[in-house]
């Protein structure tokens, strides 16, 4: 039996990012806050909704490309596998999944996997054929028999192993995240049918349309808004940190402080963006905190948030104009 000491995920409404953060902090591959990780990995900039505002909204994205990129943007190397549980090859992959997750734990690193939500594998016991995992609800580890891996109430199985981290210039990581933020704002996730989902700027339109029509999933909407409130708060904190401005909402990480002065001088545009994200975050906070708000009022809040986020993106665009121009029509392609 092997159980990694001190590896626990704390669920704070950031699907995937909560799990990734737990693995990285435990292994010592990252020292910053979740907000920093949300920003640098670009996961916090993703804004996708199911048009009926169902609870899947925050995890409806291309895990394969986005979770690979989350690692890649920050210099982390990873391997991942995924598929439908109804594929005939699934038993082969399940065997591989268990072997790779165990090997990762033997190397001292947890593994992210999908169990109806993103959770963290923190140990295993071959004699009992079970994985131990943390789902972030409390400090308890839960058991999952090997043969039930992938049995999670959804059609998907997925896992990601983080293998290492190469040194990268933090300034370059932050700048790339801003380029990707623009990409996320403007681009639909190709893996999702547009009739069912909306991304980035278009997600605001979809929310407003759903609220106006009244045809949406009440519980799902509450869940979705709370999740994105957490991500928008991250963006406010992240951009404030990057601008060298001390965010009032949260403590700025030590790493940011080191470069704060340098950034404050170099990146006045980020301060402008941070102010806008602060406004977006406050609006989302209100939406999430008052689920009883009439839809007509919520629509106004979302419209204001959309406007503020549009301004944030405009400020980031001004900052990365030269690189963006060099990428022509394809701002996401590094």
């Amino acid at each position: 039996m092997v159980v990694l000491e001190g590896l626990r995920m704390r669920s704070e409404r950031r699907p995937y990012t909560d799990a990734l953060h737990a693995v990285l902090i435990h292994r010592g591959w990252f020292r910053g806050s979740k907000a920093m990780l949300s920003g640098m990995t670009v996961t916090g900039f993703r804004f996708t909704v199911n048009r009926r505002l169902t609870a899947e909204s925050a995890t409806a994205y291309n895990w394969h490309s986005e979770n690979f990129l989350a690692a890649d943007f920050t210099g982390m190397t990873s391997s991942q596998h995924m598929g439908f549980v109804f594929q005939p090859t699934w038993p082969l992959y399940r065997e591989l999944a268990i072997a790779e997750i165990k090997a990762s734990i033997d190397r001292g690193a947890g593994a992210v996997f999908w169990h109806g939500e993103f959770v963290v594998a923190a140990g295993y016991d071959d004699e009992r054929s079970v994985l131990y995992y943390s789902d972030g609800r409390d400090s308890q580890l839960r058991e999952l028999p090997y043969e039930r891996f992938g049995n999670n109430g959804t059609p998907y199985w997925y896992y990601q192993i983080i293998e290492g981290r190469i040194p990268m210039d933090e300034h370059a990581i932050v700048k790339e995240s801003f380029l990707q933020a623009i990409f996320k704002w403007e681009t639909h996730d190709l893996a999702l049918p547009e009739r069912g989902y909306a991304c980035g700027r278009a997600a605001y339109d979809a929310i407003v349309t759903a609220l106006r029509s009244g045809d949406y999933d009440r519980d799902g909407a509450r869940e979705t808004f709370a999740t994105y409130a957490a991500f928008k708060r991250d963006l406010a904190e992240y951009t404030a940190g990057a601008a060298g401005v001390r965010s009032q909402a949260a403590a700025v990480t030590r790493e940011v402080d080191e470069h704060a002065a340098q950034r404050a001088g170099a990146w006045p545009e980020v301060a402008a963006a941070a102010e806008c994200y602060g406004e977006v975050s406050r609006l989302f906070e209100r939406i999430a905190a008052e689920p009883g708000l009439p839809d007509a009022e919520r629509i106004l809040l979302f419209e204001a948030a959309r406007q503020a986020e549009e301004q944030a993106i405009a400020a980031l665009k001004a900052l990365v104009r030269e690189t963006a121009d060099n990428r022509y029509h394809d701002i996401g392609l590094r």
Partner: peptide, 16 residues
């Protein structure tokens, strides 16, 4: 055709 009736969490993406 469950493979196509289920929205996947992978597949086509823009190269980045």
């Amino acid at each position: 055709d469950p493979r196509r009736d289920t929205v996947p969490r992978w597949g086509i993406s823009s190269a980045r």
